[in-house]
Design a binder for these strands. Structure first.
Length: 885
RNA sequence: GGGCCGGUAGAUCAGACCGGAAGAUCGCCACAUUCGCAAUGUGGAGGUCGCGGGUUCAAAUCCCGCCCGGUCCA
């Protein structure tokens, strides 16, 4: 497939020929004859220690500018970078590549791109490489993908393969790279439901860029098969390129690893703080490590290290002592940069979704800081990155980031401390730590195996950490991966005209029934709002032939609205619809109130707050937000005041349909706070100056109509997610009245005044407590008196007695008696049985009594209890058994 | 969204597997010792065993549901 696809006129014109790598077998194009594709491991990194490839050294900022300007000059429009958290997508958390910015709607053809062709430098986060960072010399969790994209439509072709390759070569040459050094390796590309042919652009052994020609999409009936999946051709052909910004910088400097090329300042700072030093010898080893590192994948880390030490003849201890700390510094400088992107883009560290990935990086970073004993906070590092890249990062977020990191560090310390105690207890108890224990400690308590090992060694216990521990952990998570799929239903009608969008105050309407089956009705037009966007559906009734038929549920499937009715109306009938206006009005106020609430919350808590989910209801609604700490009472009051300010300002609430492109360009991704609607056109609801959201709900015309907004309570539903329960309009008034009623009732009951109610209740509770204690004492007194009396009846240390008290008191009584007597049997009127016997045969005696008097009993040692049916018999049996009387 | 671990005195935890009278240590209070403090000794207070249901003669313990905290993974 590739041979035909990638045999370009450009190559023939420019003197490139196709060769096959004798090592890996891949086909590639080169201007000079070659045996191998040159890509590591088929070739080596020839640029390390050399600066000859580029005409000069580039810093990240220079390189980015160079790339963007190159393509701007060639007719590409420059696009601002997207956030690293993919707010516009619900299938992924983080942006992995520049093309993510345009999936799914631009790549599917639904929405036009922001420009065509375009150029961008998109920061990306790739967590898959997290374990390799620092060790291989070239892996990163955070990087910028410089890219130019062209979207070719059937009626409008921009450019395709020849031009893309020509641009690549021209750009490389503009940097001083000679044509003879460039290799274009053929490569089938697939991912994210798309596929196509691609070239990897290799210079000096390193892949600098990938040029993807995306023209296929996954399809069950597709006629092209790649790697077992069937694909079909798309109407759109997309040029998807990715130039690794950091790799270009690396090559321009020829440093042993990528890290010191891209953040020399941070690395220098960390080295001076920790006293870690690096000379020529270390540079040589790091270079060798980068060269051999592709083998890690096939060998596993432990084996690779053995191989590496043997191959290079270096001392293992020297490696641990000198090289490993350098690797840690590298990793830390990368993690902190990824964090600066993630946190300033508004990801809140938590245990869910993207927040968890941020926490993972934070914890790894903190651990390295501990290992290195570096006297610098993680925040300081993050701030250094953010300030250096202030042109593409939102430094106004830094105060929030600082607080988040402080909270996270505190949390990390707590986990470690608690974990250490668990490990110590475990060792004390079992004198060993098994592999299962290691998995448990990591999976349930967040303790990395080497942390456990360190603690255990301090206590003189040796532990073997199996290399496949991570896969064992993964195994525990394997089972039960079931995906819920939303039911899609199809109806034999096209669409329903949605009257509530034209006029959200429409209470009654006329319509025709165009579908009617099993109490499900579709009308040609409707004012009934179907359930959606966290807003419950409207209720009401349809009048047909003078009869009122209740509407009990309204759902939307695709473009049609289905009414479930309690009655029968035939297809073709003309009806008059009437909405339960009281309900709808409350819901409308509640919905607009929600937008006001979000605006107020963002003003009070900060712009990092992101909506996490909502559910409106008639009387009480809930609103979940991502926030890094619990909301305080003071903040609630502030939010309420702010919300009331927006309400009383009586601002227009505007709702209109816009093109997705236009709306995104104008308002940004805050639009998607409430979820990501499908389609080319989206409905934008705007409270001027306060809130803009893509929203399909019904809203009031002016904020003043909400009247009143009250937060009822807040909950922490998850780490990093708070739930605000609120109410609005008449429902709010009713709630407040209800609260007042309760307060009044309580005041009346406590017979005091309302403002002194808390004190009154406090004193009542204290009184109650002391009375309970008093009663306990009295009970004890009574038991003592009875005990004395009973003791007088005992014979030879034996006693059988029927008492009139409950189990609790009987136990107390028994406690007294058992100190003085050998054998005691107590029975109460309900048949509760208690036996004491100093010869440890209490259970036997109790069971025998129970067996003969109809009941069950048991116990251990000198005490047993049970229940019998015939109390009188029980007393007699006990007397015989114990020899009392 | 899912898996796992946990919730017992003010704090840290034992008891749970295997149901049978709610414990330890620290802290707190009082007294003794001391010029006073610290330290020590003696005594004491402090618990609806997260909540609700079930099984059982009997539940902190077993079962089910919920709430809260922690942690790992997508």
């Amino acid at each position: 497939m590739l041979e035909k696809e990638l045999d370009l006129d450009y190559f023939h014109r420019e003197g490139f020929k196709r060769y096959r790598c004798k090592k890996c077998g891949a086909y590639f194009w080169s201007a000079i004859p070659r045996d191998t594709c040159t890509e590591s491991p088929c070739g080596e990194y020839k640029f390390i220690g050399k600066k000859g490839y580029f005409r000069r050294e580039f810093e990240i900022e220079d390189m980015r500018k160079e790339f963007i300007q190159f393509f701007e000059k060639r007719g590409h429009k420059r696009i601002r970078r997207y956030p690293v958290v993919a707010r516009w997508r619900d299938d992924v958390f983080l942006v992995n590549a520049s093309i993510y910015d345009f999936q799914p709607h631009v790549t599917s053809g639904l929405v036009p791109p922001p420009a065509n062709p375009l150029v961008i430098s998109q920061p990306c986060i790739r967590m898959v490489d997290v374990d390799s960072v620092g060790k291989t010399g070239r892996h990163l969790t955070g990087f910028e993908m410089m890219a130019h994209h062209a979207f070719n439509y059937p009626d409008k072709e921009v450019y395709w393969k020849d031009e893309t390759v020509a641009y690549a070569i021209e750009f490389l040459e503009s940097l001083g790279i000679t044509r003879e050094d460039i290799v274009l390796k053929e490569h089938p590309w697939f991912g994210g439901g798309n596929a196509g042919a691609s070239f990897e652009v290799i210079v000096g052994g390193l892949e600098l860029a990938t040029l993807v020609f995306m023209n296929l999409r996954e399809s069950e009936n597709g006629d092209i098969e790649i790697d077992g999946t069937k694909y079909e051709e798309m109407p759109i052909k997309i040029v998807d390129t990715g130039y690794g910004l950091e790799r270009f910088v690396w090559m321009s400097k020829g440093t042993p690893t990528i890290y010191e090329a891209i953040y020399p300042d941070i690395i220098e700072k960390l080295m001076s703080l920790t006293g870690v030093e690096k000379g020529e010898k270390e540079d040589r080893i790091l270079g060798l490590l980068a060269f051999h590192s592709p083998k890690i994948e096939s060998m596993g880390e432990r084996k690779f290290l053995e191989f590496f030490v043997k191959e290079t003849g270096i001392n293992r201890e020297y490696y641990e002592e000198k090289i490993v700390p350098i690797q840690k510094i590298y990793a830390l400088s990368d993690f902190s940069r990824s964090l600066s992107f993630m946190l300033t883009d508004g990801i809140i560290p938590s245990n869910i979704q993207a927040g968890y990935l941020a926490r993972l990086l934070i914890r790894r970073s903190l651990k390295i800081l501990d290992d290195l004993k570096a006297d610098i906070s993680l925040y300081d590092l993050v701030e250094m990155h953010a300030k250096r890249f202030s042109d593409i990062m939102d430094t106004s977020m830094l105060p929030v980031v600082k607080e988040e990191l402080e909270i996270e560090e505190e949390r990390y310390r707590r986990t470690m401390k608690k974990g250490a105690e668990i490990v110590k207890r475990m060792i004390k108890k079992k004198r060993e730590i098994s592999v299962e224990d290691l998995i448990l400690l990591y999976d349930s308590h967040g303790l990395l195996p080497d942390v456990v090992k360190r603690i255990a060694e301090e206590m003189g216990i040796k532990i073997d950490i199996p290399e496949n521990l991570h896969s064992l952990v993964a195994k525990r998570h394997e089972k039960n991966v079931e995906k819920k799929k939303k039911k899609e239903r199809k109806f034999p009608v096209e669409k329903t005209e949605l009257l509530y969008y034209n006029d959200s105050y429409l209470k009654e309407f006329d319509a025709k029934v165009i579908y009617s089956e099993r109490k499900e009705l579709i009308l040609d037009r409707t004012a009934f709002y179907p359930e959606g966007g966290g807003q419950p559906c409207d209720l009401g009734f349809l009048i047909h032939n003078g009869k009122k038929i209740p509407v009990v549920d309204v759902q939307k499937y695709g473009e049609v609205v289905v009414h479930r009715i309690d009655g029968e109306i035939p297809k073709g009938a003309k009806i008059h619809g009437v909405i339960d206006w009281e309900r709808r009005e409350r819901l409308m106020r509640m919905h607009t109130a929600e937008h006001v609430l979000l605006a107020a919350i963002r003003r009070v808590l900060g712009k990092h707050v992101w909506q996490h989910g909502t559910q409106k209801d008639v009387y009480e609604s809930r609103f979940d937000i991502a926030h890094y700490k619990p909301i305080t009472r003071e903040e609630i009051k502030k939010i309420e005041r702010e919300a009331m300010r927006i309400i009383t300002s009586n601002i227009d609430v505007e709702a209109k349909f816009m093109s997705r492109r236009g709306a995104e360009d104008k308002y940004g991704f805050v639009l998607y706070e409430g979820g990501i609607p499908p389609g080319k056109e989206i409905r934008v609801v705007r409270i001027d100056g306060f809130d803009v959201e893509a929203c399909g709900g019904t809203h009031v015309k002016k904020t003043g109509e909400i009247g009143f907004l009250k937060i009822l309570r807040t909950e922490r539903i998850q780490d990093g997610v708070s739930r605000v329960i609120y109410t609005a309009g008449l429902s709010a008034l009713e709630k407040v009245q209800e609260m007042e009623d309760n307060a009044l009732k309580a005041t009346e009951l406590a017979s005091g005044s309302m403002d002194k109610l808390p004190e009154k209740i406090k004193s009542l509770i204290e009184e109650n407590k002391s009375m309970r204690k008093e009663m306990e004492k009295m009970k004890e007194e009574r038991v003592k008196i009875i005990a004395d009396e009973l003791l007088r009846n005992s014979k030879d240390g034996k006693l059988v007695a029927r008492v009139h008290m409950d189990r609790g008191e009987m136990q107390k009584l028994m406690k007294f008696l058992s100190e003085k007597l050998e054998k005691v049997v107590l029975l109460n009127d309900k048949g509760a049985l208690m036996v004491h016997s100093t010869d440890e045969r209490a259970a036997e005696i109790a069971r025998e009594i129970a067996a003969k008097a109809g009941g069950k009993a048991g116990g251990r040692g000198s005490f047993a209890q049970g229940k019998i049916e015939r109390v009188e018999d029980g007393v007699n049996i006990a007397k015989t058994l114990t020899g009392y009387e």
